[in-house]
């Protein structure tokens, strides 16, 4: 569980942060905070699907569900079962 959190967090930092000094936590707002735009969400979704071998339906992949690392992990877990 912690493991997945860190994997997602690391991916988000690597993928989206332009400024190396910015600090992100599990609860940082990603979409409402302007870090991930709605377009870039696509690559995050694709990353999660490839990494965890799941399919996230479009109606579940909402901006709310992707807004924090914690939310994302909850969503992925829902589909891992």
């Amino acid at each position: 569980m912690e493991d997945m959190k860190d994997i997602v967090l690391e991916y988000v930092i690597e993928e989206y942060l332009e400024d190396e000094d910015e600090v992100l936590t599990y609860d940082s707002p990603l979409i409402s905070g302007g870090i991930v735009d709605s377009f870039s969400m696509v690559s995050l979704k694709r990353f999660l699907e490839n990494k965890y071998n799941i399919t996230l339906p479009d109606d579940k992949a909402t901006p709310e569900a992707f807004d924090t690392v914690n939310n994302i992990v909850a969503l992925v877990n829902e589909f891992l079962k």
Partner: peptide, 8 residues
Amino acid sequence: ALHDTFKH
């Protein structure tokens, strides 16, 4: 089509 971005 699917849309993705790369850093500037």
